[in-house]
Design a protein around this nucleic acid. Structure first.
Lengths: 140, 140
DNA sequence: TAATACTTGACTATTTTAGTCGGGTATATA
DNA sequence: TATATACCCGACTAAAATAGTCAAGTATTA
């Protein structure tokens, strides 16, 4: 039950950006240095964030990326979706025709996993980018 | 964010066993057939469940496995621990010396992941084997 | 026009997962 | 006591996923 690095880095990078004035382009190079994330990998991640309307890009020198919305309005669930982090804890649910484990009926534990997915998604639905900063500020 | 099959099968198999009278050994062969799980794989899983005191084995013909406790007293969290399904959503937390991503301080999102782990573990702490059966019975 | 920074698809090493295989040992019962 | 049943256990492996890297660009600004 692990999160992949893509989701983690995406959240880290966006949290990093949130600390700067909105409309001020933040370059991936800077994020890369501050957060110790490979620049090339960040590029890959931001491509997805851009496609999913979470950030927009500003090309050229002094360019970078800008949050498309206020951090308060960017839910973690959106970020996760953008970088393809699926919260589908098991595979036996989409394939409704065949059912679980190739059987014609749902497996005993089917509902449990459904419930778990909803539970976890709920966590990400109720957190936004600015929540992260607030926690950090309270502590430091 | 996926559960591995080991955890899923472990829960399925134990839920299957829970339907039979306690002290009545249930053979892996039967579970294998009913739940469509490879017998060899089940053996591997039950070895761990046994080591972790969740089931005990009865050798010889007519043997099998028996739940060591009432299903009501077997929490899902124990099962997960037994089969090494760690709910450690990110890797950057044990290594307290080096901090996250090799930096000397915790990463911005560190607390978020801690919180997430606790949240998910909480789900499994509050579910036991008999909960699964009850849900099933209500529906059918 | 040089430097900076985004753009994009393809590629790859490493790790994890999801099992299988082989050769055991213990016990019940016929 | 023979034999079938069922647990025991370490080692192995194919396939998939992960975590990146690489190459070859394009756009913009100072």
């Amino acid at each position: 039950m692990k999160l992949n690095t893509k989701s983690r880095y995406a959240v880290m990078a966006l949290a990093d950006m949130s600390k700067f004035p909105i409309n001020n382009p933040v370059s991936l190079r800077d994020i890369s240095l501050r957060q110790s994330i490979s620049l090339l990998y960040l590029e890959q991640i931001f491509l997805k964030l851009k496609k999913n309307e979470i950030v927009k890009s500003v090309r050229g020198s002094n360019g970078g990326y800008v949050l498309k919305r206020n951090p308060k309005n960017i839910k973690l669930s959106e970020i996760f979706q953008a970088v393809d982090q699926k919260v589908k804890t098991v595979g036996c649910k989409k394939d409704s025709k065949k059912g679980c484990n190739g059987k014609s009926v749902k497996c005993i534990t089917h509902e449990l996993w459904d419930e778990l997915d909803i539970y976890i998604n709920n966590f990400f639905e109720n957190k936004n980018l600015s929540d992260l900063l607030m926690t950090k500020e309270r502590k430091n």
